[in-house]
Design a protein around this nucleic acid. Structure first.
Lengths: 169, 169
DNA sequence: ACCGTCATGTAATCGGTTACATGATTCT
DNA sequence: AGAATCATGTAACCGATTACATGACGGT
């Protein structure tokens, strides 16, 4: 626990994932890859630094193995849960995402739209297929609401992108 | 001109904007705000550091006023143009944007979808209206292809977002 | 026993954001 | 002439990406 700072999205990702179940940074890496990473990637090194930071701020408890690998397992504290749910509830006003699409950037700066569009259509189609498969695979189980919704959002976005870029061909 | 590095999107934004016409970092700020900033914002401080960096690497020429404000006006060099067009042409393969939508993140991590959706619908609608107005204002003139296309993309994205979040209400 | 790959972590670098600061203009 | 705002720039901090490094384990 030390000097205050504004928590970042990465902080909340860590808190959110640990809120379900304690784990090591490496576990978190796997959890991110399992779903969240599809629309919000996190470098694995961040998971080490961010867990350490959050622990030093009192949002996580750290439990280190005494033998072998001496892995550090983190679990969320009361304060951590409080910070997380404050963030989840706050800000009904909603910040909007920036688009930040590298393809669009190139078009804006003068690239040939048709060339970019061709590549984008292919890439979005590939990702769309991947996500659709994922959805089929998951729909056999109960899909927790949050991840299910974001997957739908991703699929929706990919479809729209394919349509948009196709219109430029 | 010194040690090599990979140019960043910010680098290409600077190069791209200066390719049309030389200017000071402050001019660039205005140009970004005029259009690009709608989908890819750049902090003004970056425009100072990035121009300086690019100049030291030989991609820009720097011309400093000898009197008054001693403003620095930058113009793109041959090497700069070469780097820019290499980037514009390259990578037909296309990296995809990450969604990185804060609203989606909250939903994934357990926020109440309806609450988030309500805020998102409102915010996206506001931005949509703004962009539609912008489009009307611009369509009186000839809109250069690049910016025109990205504006359409933005409008399209906003419409889809409104629809998506509305479906969760 | 060796090799490759997965697991696990630390260190260094660097771009980006925030904060600070001051010189011109314009308006009242 | 003073206040407010726009123009213009520098400095410090910090999170994020990249690179590096080593331990365990499964297979041949």
């Amino acid at each position: 626990m030390s000097g205050d700072r504004e928590l970042t999205p990465t902080s909340y990702i860590v808190l959110g994932l640990l809120a379900e179940e304690p784990g090591t940074p490496y576990d978190l890496k796997a959890r991110v890859a399992a779903g969240l990473g599809n629309f919000w990637s996190v470098q694995h090194a961040q998971l080490y630094t961010e867990t350490a930071r959050l622990a030093s701020e009192g949002f996580l408890d750290e439990d280190r193995e005494t033998e072998g690998r001496r892995r550090k397992t983190y679990s969320i504290t009361k304060a951590g849960r409080a910070a997380l749910s404050a963030w989840l509830d706050e800000d009904a006003v909603g910040e909007l995402p920036e688009i930040r699409d590298p393809g669009l950037l190139k078009v804006y700066l003068g690239a040939d739209p048709k060339v970019i569009a061709a590549a984008q259509v292919a890439a979005h189609k590939a990702r769309l297929k991947e996500w659709e498969n994922l959805k089929v695979a998951l729909s056999t189980f109960e899909v927790p609401t949050g991840p299910g919704i974001t997957l739908d959002a991703g699929i929706n976005y990919a479809r729209v992108s394919v349509k948009f870029w196709s219109s430029l061909l």
